[in-house]
Simulated assay, not measured.
Amino acid sequence: MEQANHQNDQEHVLVSHLTELRKRMIIVIVFFILSLILGFFVSSTILNFIKDQPSAVDIEWNVFGFGDGITIYLKCALIVSVLITLPVALYQTWKFVKPGLTEQEKKGTFIFIPISFFLFILGVVFSYFVLFPMMLQFLTKINQTIGATETYGINQYFKLMFGIIFPISIMFELPVIVIFLTKVGIVNPKFLRKIRKVAYMVLVVIAAAITPPDFVSEILVSIPLLLLFEISIICSSSIYKKKVRDS
């Protein structure tokens, strides 16, 4: 009888967790859809802002297909939606795991929400205003050196831009992920230093995958990724020392 009651309690807890998870996911999906709609309304303004930037002002955005324009609108709206939905998704994730946390853990993990969002925005700003213009300038000089006539399609321009912005922005979350994993005891600075060479190789491969096939572009993207890993080690070391001191 006790075993049956225990099993019923477990099933009730599981159903309760699934119901709560479904509720959190619905909230995130609704925010995503609403912000996607908002993205369509502001895409024109954003695209005009991008067109006026020094990296784009001298480039003609040609279209080579009827669907090129709407494709760019969709991508731009998607970026707006991700930026708006990200803090909501982080908060809903925290609300879902909150009941299983202690008071100290609740305070310690809540701070990850604004920090994660800030780092993502920082990644977007850095990749668009620093990395992307440098890469575009380098590629343009190469084309001019060989006497090529530059006729860019809008799809090619944004494919390169989004291919840099999204991966770099996600990689900017690395310090937060490492801090969280250190807090829960999954990693420590000693382990991170031990896998440094492997991590470097993986990050260089990622840089090569998201950049045009040239050595300079790979270096321009690899350097900030490697710096982020080193910053992650420093953050992990700080958190680990604090844990040891408080234990």
Rank of each mutant, 00 (worst) to 15 (best):
K241F: 07
M171H: 04
I179N: 01
V244K: 15
S237P: 02
Y200E: 11
V63T: 13
R196P: 11
F49T: 05
R193W: 03
K197C: 01
T85M: 08
R24P: 11
I113T: 01
Q92W: 03
F158C: 03
L227V: 15
T85D: 01
D246K: 13
L220R: 02
I27T: 10
V176R: 06
I170P: 00
T19W: 04
L34W: 05
P133M: 07
V198E: 00
F112E: 03
G185N: 06
F138A: 11
T19V: 10
V63C: 01
E60Q: 15
R196C: 13
I210G: 00
I223G: 06
K98E: 15
A207G: 02
K183H: 06
F120M: 10
T102W: 07
L220M: 10
K106Y: 05
G147D: 07
K243V: 12
T85Q: 05
W94N: 02
K194R: 04
L47E: 02
L14R: 11
E230W: 05
Q92T: 07
F112I: 08
T211R: 01
I210Q: 00
F166S: 00
K106S: 14
L225N: 10
L74I: 12
V198C: 00
Q92A: 09
D9L: 12
V82R: 09
A89E: 00
L14W: 04
I223C: 10
S35V: 10
V80A: 02
L74E: 02
Q104S: 15
L47A: 00
I165G: 06
S44F: 06
I195L: 05
I29L: 11
K141V: 14
V82L: 14
V130G: 10
L83Q: 06
Q156P: 02
A208I: 05
N143D: 13
V198P: 00
I142C: 04
G67T: 09
K190Y: 12
E230V: 11
R24S: 14
L136G: 03
D246N: 12
K75V: 06
V124A: 12
E20L: 12
V204W: 04
I231T: 07
M171F: 09
V216N: 07
G108T: 09
D9P: 03
E60T: 14
A56Q: 05
Y73N: 12
L101K: 02
Q7M: 13
E11Q: 04
F66D: 08
S169Q: 03
F64A: 07
I186G: 04
Y128I: 04
L136D: 07
M134N: 06
C235T: 05
T109R: 09
I165S: 03
K141Q: 15
T149V: 12
D52W: 06
L228D: 09
I70S: 11
P175C: 04
I234R: 12
V15G: 07
I37S: 08
F166G: 00
F117N: 13
L181A: 01
A77H: 02
L181T: 00
I165F: 02
K159C: 04
I113V: 14
S238A: 10
T102K: 12
I59W: 01
Q10V: 11
V125R: 03
H6M: 11
P189Y: 08
D68H: 08
I168V: 14
T182P: 07
Y200K: 04
I46G: 03
K141P: 03
N62Q: 13
I142S: 04
T19A: 12
N62P: 09
T71E: 08
P114G: 08
